[in-house]
Design a protein around this nucleic acid. Sequence first.
DNA 1: TAATGTGAAGTTTTTCACAGCC
DNA 2: GGCTGTGAAAAACTTCACATTA
Lengths: 245, 245
Amino acid sequence: MAPDDRAQPEKGLPAAVVARLTIYLRALNSFLADGVDRVSSDALAEASGVSSSTLRKDLSQLGSYGTRGVGYEVENLLQHLSAALGLTRDWRVAIVGAGNLGRALARYGGFGTRGFDVVALLDTDPQIIGNEIGWLRVTDAANLEAVFERTRANMAVLALPASVAQSVCDRVVAAGVRSILSFAPTILQVPPGVTLRKVDMATELQILAYHAQRGESGGESGQPSAAAAHTQAHDDAARHRGPSA
Amino acid sequence: MAPDDRAQPEKGLPAAVVARLTIYLRALNSFLADGVDRVSSDALAEASGVSSSTLRKDLSQLGSYGTRGVGYEVENLLQHLSAALGLTRDWRVAIVGAGNLGRALARYGGFGTRGFDVVALLDTDPQIIGNEIGWLRVTDAANLEAVFERTRANMAVLALPASVAQSVCDRVVAAGVRSILSFAPTILQVPPGVTLRKVDMATELQILAYHAQRGESGGESGQPSAAAAHTQAHDDAARHRGPSA
DNA sequence: TAATGTGAAGTTTTTCACAGCC
DNA sequence: GGCTGTGAAAAACTTCACATTA
């Protein structure tokens, strides 16, 4: 049995690849908006800021969605990438923390590519609870568990000060959420089976500082390839372990 | 051979290492706040969510700042990490875009660990220009070049809609900034010599979706090590090329 | 004795180069 | 002819294991 083991998005993709797929997705959407029907691996790689070999290797892990001698059909590839990333179903996101950042995120209408519904916005501040932000009303974080159950939120975005981040994170996990995006400037611990990603301006600025500090070294400039001409930084690496069994 | 090529922070650190240094920095600050004087590589690794071998390898690239049989002095290591990351000098950050996100970032007082001064906040909206946000007054982005020169900003944070991000980015680069952190949900192209990092909720959610979609696979559970028990995702990878000469 | 620092081994990721197909 | 898909080579990164040193 099992005539074809290839093209199994369910099988487990390297973290670095997943991170790049999101970039390709954005580049493809951009091409689509410009009315471009087909792209070559070179063109897409250029727009994405990666090498064309990396791009082809990445895409080949999902299956053979290109046509030799021609390239990739933008819309088709977009479909397959979306499917691979799990964007065909809808995700219900609860934002915890309606301070400056939480409000900004909630109002951020173009919530990336669609597929992510913000279903709740919570806070503990009585002055903020009840306010209308975007299409949402801020609910009391004291009822976090109830709100998560009612809205069936399956992702949480933490827009909280560092001091309360861990305890709220624990409650969110206890409420059954296993995908968390934290904007809190602190290290969080989550149990196995929960995926946590972290976005942090301080970290990013520090990395920029490192590169700025050492100035641009007098690197050699003989690279005939145009593929390395631009600069783009991105992230990757998400670890998680199996269920507690 | 080559008796001592080590301990040269100026020599170029792997991108993955730089990303982790920022985590160690945060963990160390946390230890410091708790009044802890010394940490072992095991303890610091645990708090940072990495293996102790990785931690020691990383630190050894900076030099030998630990004491065998004892561990690392928190304050001392903090100093050395800060120096390695270029955080001993001050960086002047201009935030371009005073919409919801830009305002949130500007008000974000604990700007990570200190070392980053927000020196300007710019926008094009006449209704926003002149407003006071935090300790700043919003200035007209039409004068971007003048503002950057006057404030001697050497880092820029872009909190802009995708539609104008590239053109503003170009102006920022033309103004001489070579370190840019973009929150705009779009791919940006910058010339060689400029370091760009990108923070993007859509990307992060998509990566979470991927992991959530494939559920937690029934991985084998025989790992005796406790080092992999928690989950933390972080970023890395920043490419840049030599000066335009 | 305890815990760092580090060569060496192992694993993952990227690049190369070209076979295969349109 | 042109461009994808992919094995093989190269590079980067992580883990292991232990010599080393306070």
